[in-house]
Design a protein around this nucleic acid. Structure first.
Lengths: 226, 226
DNA sequence: ACATCCGCATGACAGATGTCATGCGGACAG
DNA sequence: CTGTCCGCATGACATCTGTCATGCGGATGT
């Protein structure tokens, strides 16, 4: 357990040099998370660190880019599950518009597929909310120093899983089927024959080693492939 | 419908010094939440309040009772989704063992069924993590003063929904079907005929106004009836 | 004591779902 | 250029799933 780590005195270790250029000024952080209570609690936590300042908050994925631009942010902390845009989509957007900015993805679920997508979207760190709180401030400092911060266990799992085996069509149909749509509706919505829809579902079920669509949806969700 | 109702009886029994913010000792809080980062962030947030002290933390539902006993806790803050025991189950346990203790249930999902179960288990407050962070400390103080704290919108939704319409059997089967089990397996596991299983699912589907088992599971989950 | 309601249980039937064999066309290595 | 692979697409067939009519037994209210 990494319980109480409030010792600013011994904090001299990981900060021999401020990699953001201007020495001495606090690290400017954007925090994006849809649940107010969690967001503000995380802000309080980071506020305890003398060298970190939360200068912007966002409750929706589609507010992230504007907020980052408006506040000259050094590091963006993004939750994945957000309304408007997922943290992953927001990360891709940030990389395109503000390539200097370091993106940390912070999520409830340590799904290998999420890690993979996050890295592909340009994130340099991936944290799960299960991890000790001390890792949060730590990760902020380390990404600014140019490091990548990834839980080794999760990285191994992501590599072991391999990539998402589902094709675009299969994912599309599985996602729609997850909401309870009957495959006649799917066929109509996608302008396909009913048999074709069934066939995609069938191959998806086989690829995921499931016994029916319900289980297939569960497995795909669990791995972050949906 | 919210806090305006005080309990007339059973109030101010053994309290020479009201532990409320006035002049007494700080309020002793137990915080139970499985995600370390969120738990410690919430602890940091509460730690900013001068009259509140987080004296115990639990990462699992089955650690709650022992922790509450060991630290003479005034208020327990319980997340619902936890390993070991749900926050609801832990609340029932606390009410049985430590009836003085005020229980606040704190959850990600504002599901009406959750609210209902929480109140039946003896919780006196129900907060969603979507709410502003200030409500957390506020709720702690108010429950200690004998108030109940419930989001009026959610309370209205819970009343409008009515109670869980599913019978025990239906819930049991729907829950199992949610994992992707085929109903032949369900029949074997529950020592029923296959037709019977289908029938339970059928009535569940009708009660929930769903079109198939998948959608029924989704609806039941959303309402907190699973 | 009785009628009534409700949960539990079953099998027959129709319609939805999953599997299979088959074919088309683009990408890619040789 | 050609053979091969893979994603996309379809219809026929067998199985699974959802609905219905029916019946049993315990609780409830009168």
């Amino acid at each position: 357990m990494t319980g109480s780590t409030h010792s600013p005195a011994e904090d001299t270790g990981p900060a021999p040099d401020r990699p953001t250029g201007t020495a001495g000024r606090p690290i400017r952080v954007l925090l994006a998370e849809d649940q107010s209570m969690v967001r503000e609690a995380l802000a309080a936590l980071l506020g305890l660190e003398p060298d970190i300042e939360v200068v912007a908050q966002a409750a929706r994925g589609d507010e992230v880019l504007a907020a980052a631009r408006a506040h000259a942010v050094d590091v963006a902390l993004l939750d994945i599950e957000m309304p408007g845009r997922t943290g992953i989509e927001a990360a891709a957007e940030l990389r395109a518009a503000l390539p200097e900015l370091k993106v940390v993805v912070l999520t409830t679920f340590g799904r290998p597929g999420y890690l993979r997508s996050a890295m592909e979207a340009g994130a340099v760190a991936f944290l799960v909310k299960d991890a000790p709180a001390a890792q949060l401030a730590d990760a902020v400092r380390r990404v600014l120093a140019g490091e990548r911060v990834i839980d080794p266990t999760l990285a191994a799992a992501a590599l072991a899983e391999g990539a998402n085996p589902l094709t675009d069509r299969e994912r599309e149909i599985l996602r729609a089927a997850a909401d309870g749509a009957t495959n006649a509706e799917l066929a109509a919505a996608l302008h396909l024959s009913q048999g074709t829809v069934r066939n995609y579902l069938s191959t998806a079920i086989q690829k995921l080693a499931a016994r029916n669509r319900t289980e297939a949806v569960g497995i795909a969700r669990e791995k972050g492939w949906l």
